[in-house]
Write a protein that binds this DNA or RNA. Structure first.
Lengths: 336, 336
DNA sequence: CTGTTAGCGCATTCAC
DNA sequence: GTGAATGCGCTAACAG
C-alpha cells in the first residue's frame, strides 16, 4: 500500500520473469513446493531474493478463500484473566500457519456487533470469542457467514457453533458451598456487572438460598473498585465475615481496604477471588481463588478451528474444561 | 471463506441486482454516498439488508490499495506495560476507521523477522512496533515496503521511519541520581535481559560511575523472578540499601521477598520499579516507580500513521514523551 | 513437472 | 448522477 515512493512492490509476476518460469510455477514453488522440481524451487527462491518480493496475502486469500487469519474477540486486552487463552490461541494457531487478529469489544454490546461485522468482512478462517456472543443479530450473522465460530469462557445450551468453557453458575455455587462449609453466615459479594459475573452471583445465591449484601462495580474491575466495594459492603453489613469477589483484582482491593481498616484476614474477614491471577499466590495473605485453565481453553479452541478448516470433523463441539477452588491464606489459616 | 454450507456469501453483485442498479453504483452508495442520490442509497441499503451482504475487504483492499488495517507488534500482550499504548492505539485508529492487528514477537528476534514478513504480506496501512526494530534485514524490508512505520517506547538516532518514545538511558541515569540524592551507597539492580532494560542499566551505571551488583532475569519479568532476584542480590551484597528494578512486577517480587525476610521497606531497603503499573500505588508499601505516558505514545503513533495515510506531512517524525519518577513509600517515609 | 486460462470481489478510470 | 470496461495479484482447474 501507500506507494508514496514511486516504485511498486515486486509481484509474483516479476519473480516468475526473473526466474524464467511461468507465474503459476513461481506460485507453486513458494506455496506448494512438492509439485515443483528442486532446481526450479531454487531459481524461484533466488528470484525472490533478487526482487525483494513479499507475497500479497490479500490477493492470495481472495482467490484461495483461505485468509490464514483467525479473529479473536476479547472485552479488553487489559483484563488479565483472558491472557493465557489469547496467548495459547496465538501460539497454537501460529504453529499451524494461522495468525490471530485481536479485536476489543469493550464490554459494550453495540461495539461487539460492529466489530463482528468488520471481522467478517476480512474473511477470517475462524472466529473465537471470549464470552458468548450477545446479540441475536450477531449470532445470526455469524451462523450465516459459514465461518467456524468458537465461543469460550462460558457454557450455553445453544452455542452459535462450537464452544469451550465452563459453568459460571456452578462456580458461584461452589464458592457458596465452600463458605457454608466454613460455618460463615454473614456473607457478601463484590461483583462486576458483566454477564459471567452475574451468573456466578446467581449460582452463589441459589446455593445459599437467600439474598446477601452485594456491591456491584462496573466492568472491567480493578483494585480501586475493590476497595470501594468493601467500604460499601461494610456499610450494608458491619458483621461481614466473608466476601466472594468476581475477580482477583477486585479481591486485591478488598484485601487492601481490609488491611487499611485493620481487619485481620482471614480471622475477621475471609476473601475469595476468581481467576487465579499470577499475583494471587504471592499476596500477603495469599489469595484463595478459582482457577480456570485458560491456556487449555485457547488450545482447544485453536484445534477446533484448525480441524474445521482442514475439513475434519470436530469430535466434541462443546467442551467443559471445569474449574477448581484454590484454598490459600485469605480464607484459611492452615492453607498455603 | 469455508463454504462447507453450499451457499455462497452475497456479493456486491447480488446487492446491485436486488437494488436494480449497476455494480459500481452499489459500491458508491456504500463507500462514497456523496456521489449517489438519496433514493438510490436507500434502495441499496434495503438490498444489503435483504441479501445479508457483508463486504469483502480482501477484494476491496486489493483494488484500492488501502487495507484500513494497521499492524501492531508487541513482545507479548502479557506485559502490562504496553497495554495503555495498545489501548490508545486501538481506539485512536478505530475512530479513523482503521483496525489494529496485533502480533506478538515473543522477545525473540528471529520470530520478529518472520512476523514482520507476515504482517507486510497483509499490506497494512501502517506498522507500529513497541521497541525498536532489531534486525537490519527487517529494517531494510520495512523501509522498502513503503508502509508508514512508527517505532515506540525507545529513542534512536536513525529510526526506520517515525518514532515516539523516550530515552531509557536517561531513565536509568535519573534513578541513579535519585538514589545518590538520598545518600544511599550500597545499590543493586534487578533487570530483565531485554534491550531497553539494558539501556536503563547502562544509564544507571554511567551516572553512578561504578559497577553495582546486578541480578539479570529473563524477559518477560514477573513477581516470582523478582523474589529470586532479591535473594541473589543479597547474597552478592548483604548490606544492600536500595534496588532499582526494571519493571513493577519485578519490584513487587522484591518487596514480597523483603517482607518474607523481615526487611523493613524503606527503612532497611528501598525499592524503585519501572512502568507505574496500576497496582504500584496500592501496594503496601506503595511503590516508587517511573511513570511513562503509554497512552500518549499510542495516540501520537496513531496520528502519525493516519496523517501519512491521508497524505499529510507529519510535522515531527520523532517525538520524545519523556518520563517522571513517582516517589512513594517504598523509597520515602514521607511520600504518599 | 510445467503452463494456459479464467476469475476471486471489488474500486478506479473513463465515458455518458 | 450513473454505467461499462478493466485489472488489483494471486491461485484453482484443467491441459499438456
Amino acid at each position: 500500500m501507500n506507494d508514496r515512493f514511486a516504485f511498486k512492490a515486486a509481484t509474483l509476476h516479476d519473480v516468475a520473469r526473473a526466474a524464467g518460469v511461468s507465474l503459476i510455477t513461481a506460485s507453486r514453488a513458494l506455496s506448494n513446493p512438492g509439485l515443483v522440481s528442486e532446481k526450479t524451487i531454487k531459481r524461484v527462491h533466488d528470484a525472490v531474493e533478487a526482487t525483494g518480493y513479499t507475497p500479497n496475502l490479500l490477493a492470495g486469500s481472495l482467490k484461495s478463500r483461505r485468509s490464514l487469519m483467525v479473529a479473536g474477540l476479547v472485552p479488553t486486552i487489559s483484563v488479565a484473566q483472558f491472557l493465557p487463552t489469547v496467548q495459547a490461541l496465538t501460539e497454537s494457531l501460529a504453529a499451524a500457519g494461522y495468525q490471530l487478529m485481536l479485536g476489543q469489544t469493550g464490554y459494550d454490546h453495540s461495539r461487539e456487533d460492529a466489530l463482528i461485522n468488520t471481522m467478517i468482512s476480512r474473511r477470517p478462517d475462524g472466529i473465537v470469542t471470549t464470552g458468548l456472543v450477545h446479540s441475536i443479530a450477531a449470532q445470526e450473522k455469524l451462523r450465516r457467514s459459514g465461518i467456524p465460530i468458537v465461543e469460550t469462557w462460558d457454557l450455553n445450551e445453544r452455542p452459535v457453533d462450537m464452544l469451550v468453557g465452563f459453568s459460571h453458575t456452578k462456580v458461584g455455587s461452589a464458592i457458596a458451598g465452600y463458605f457454608l462449609g466454613k460455618g460463615w453466615t454473614h456473607l457478601g459479594i463484590a461483583t462486576g456487572d458483566d454477564h459471567r459475573g452475574t451468573l456466578r452471583r446467581e449460582g452463589f445465591l441459589a446455593t445459599l438460598g437467600r439474598e446477601v449484601p452485594t456491591a456491584v462495580v462496573p466492568a472491567p474491575s480493578s483494585l480501586e473498585l475493590g476497595r470501594r466495594a468493601l467500604r460499601e459492603l461494610l456499610e450494608k453489613e458491619p458483621r461481614l465475615r466473608a466476601v466472594y469477589c468476581s475477580s482477583d483484582p477486585l479481591a486485591q482491593g478488598v484485601l487492601a481496604e481490609a488491611q487499611a481498616r485493620g481487619l485481620k484476614v482471614p480471622e475477621q474477614l475471609a476473601v475469595c477471588g476468581f481467576g487465579d491471577a499470577d499475583f494471587a499466590a504471592h499476596m500477603q495473605p495469599s489469595l484463595t481463588t478459582v482457577h480456570v485453565d485458560g491456556a487449555a481453553i485457547g488450545k482447544i479452541a485453536a484445534k477446533m478451528i484448525i480441524d474445521r478448516c482442514q475439513g475434519k470433523e470436530v469430535e466434541s463441539p462443546v467442551v467443559d474444561v471445569g474449574f477448581r477452588i484454590i484454598e490459600r491464606s485469605s480464607t484459611s489459616l492452615s492453607a498455603d
